[in-house]
Design a protein around this nucleic acid. Structure first.
Lengths: 198, 198
DNA sequence: ACAGCCATGTAACTTGTTACATGATTTT
DNA sequence: AAAATCATGTAACAAGTTACATGGCTGT
């Protein structure tokens, strides 16, 4: 929902045309995530379908301006005043490590080591990019905020990986391993007991 | 991709039927994210379409067993040995705060304060749930790992929110604010210069 | 003339998510 | 007998993502 909601929030500032929205989104998020232009137009059409925006009159250059509706403005207000629900979405890394740790056939320590190397390199890269860009103007400040966000997250990730690594190392070989058929439910539904096609 | 890849990784341990896969996924991820059963069957059909799994013979109870293909097993190996790409996906919170901070009409400090309250409460909740469940058995340990992951992330989030709050407070009123039309491209494409319908 | 950007759109696709239908078996 | 759980599926949809088509305008 972040793209959809961000575009709507920008439109709450005043009418924009599609290409301009991409520019505004980039400036405000430090141009960290490149946004395919096509997605702008898709999203605008979906917002229109939901009654949150409407097409305005084109200007002298023929730009298709979009303006927010009252319903859309209400949605922006609600968005800004309600916290983002973390933990509702699945965490790909937590799932992966957790699954790998409980899979008897997988080398969890190796998975952790590789992730750790990647994240360490990533942290350096983030720091470099933040320092390169600077934070003199508003756009640079936005970029720095996003870089910081990722650096805090990467740092936490490293500490968690170490934490997991220690816990796994502390346990006897494969104490976490979960066999597939450990406790399979006994109830079934008999349909065919013989081969499918004889 | 986390559900898809996790199910495939579980199937790499041996054939499973749909309902069983849900159980296995839950055990291995601490049952933190409830997985709608329907999604299992959808995902299996898509994995079959992609040649990563195939339907095996049903057992005496009529359970539809699924088994991994060589291609699927290769995919699991690749998944486990390649790090999760963090930062490729957009961070909803980073975007929201960054957009709110650059929107002249929004009260970024209020947005941050509300998020902070939510995350603090969430951190307490996570700690409580982790301690309640314990980590005696393998399943409990998996649960604890996931809870820890979320706690590390929530902690980092709090520190980032404070960091952003300080930066915003340090700057003069609305120094971050980005006006919509600051520098709009001059190039257009003339199509209609008059009103659309006269 | 031509490359490259500005600008709008369309079509097809991915993963994830939910609601619903159906029926068997087990528990109470 | 009723409620709960086991089990398989289907249909529809959301948000995101990409590739492509089509032009106009700008700078070299």
């Amino acid at each position: 929902m972040s793209v959809r909601q961000s575009l709507l929030a920008i439109l709450a500032q005043g009418p924009c045309y599609g290409y301009q929205l991409r520019h505004e989104f980039d400036r405000r998020t430090g141009a960290v995530w490149s946004l395919n232009v096509g997605q702008i137009y898709n999203t605008l059409e979906r917002l229109e379908r939901d009654g949150f925006v409407r097409r305005g009159a084109p200007d002298a250059q023929g730009h298709v301006y979009w303006e927010i509706t009252d319903e859309g403005a209400d949605d922006v207000d609600r968005w800004l005043l309600s916290p983002v629900e973390r933990g509702a979405a699945r965490d790909e890394l937590a799932i992966k490590i957790s699954v790998a740790a409980t899979l008897p056939g997988a080398d969890a320590a190796e998975v952790i080591a590789r992730q750790r190397a990647e994240t360490t390199a990533r942290l350096d890269d983030l720091r470099r990019r933040r320092d390169e860009r600077g934070d003199a103007d508003a756009e640079g400040l936005a970029h720095a905020l996003v870089m910081d966000s990722m650096m805090f997250a990467a740092d936490a990730e490293l500490r968690w990986l170490d934490h997991v690594g220690e816990r796994l190392a502390a346990h006897p070989q494969h104490a976490l391993a979960l066999e597939l058929t450990a406790e399979r439910p006994k109830r079934g539904r008999p349909r065919t007991s013989g081969p499918a096609l004889v």
